[in-house]
């Protein structure tokens, strides 16, 4: 499948951020970042995107854990156990 230039750049930045670039390629990329402020900005923004995805994913995972908790509370023996602990 044909990939647009901007997507190739997304891919390169991803390789850089996930430490999948060889030493030489990495050095070249870092030089380009120094010379090209817009590339530097894109790298920072992409790092931010990764972080947001992590935060989003954790919220989803937390909701899942909350639903497991609610499910277990409906089991009388589990609910009683907790009640006793905090009695």
């Amino acid at each position: 499948m044909y990939m647009r230039n901007d997507l190739i750049e997304v891919e390169q930045i991803e390789k850089y951020l996930s430490h999948q670039m060889s030493g030489e390629k990495k050095a070249q990329f870092e030089t380009r970042m120094l010379l090209d402020g817009s590339l530097f900005e894109k790298v920072e923004a992409q790092k931010h995107v990764h972080k947001l995805i992590r935060i989003f994913s954790r919220r989803q995972q937390r909701n899942k854990l909350e639903s497991v908790y609610q499910q277990l509370l409906r089991e009388p023996s589990f609910a009683q156990q907790l009640k006793n602990i905090f009695a």
């Binding site: 499948m1 997507l7 997304v10 891919e11 991803e14 995107v49 947001l52």
Partner: peptide, 14 residues
């Protein structure tokens, strides 16, 4: 390709 498109969309919005 789809994954890169998704990343780019969010990056641009940010």
């Amino acid at each position: 390709v789809q994954k890169h498109k998704c990343i780019e969309k969010i990056r641009t919005a940010l």
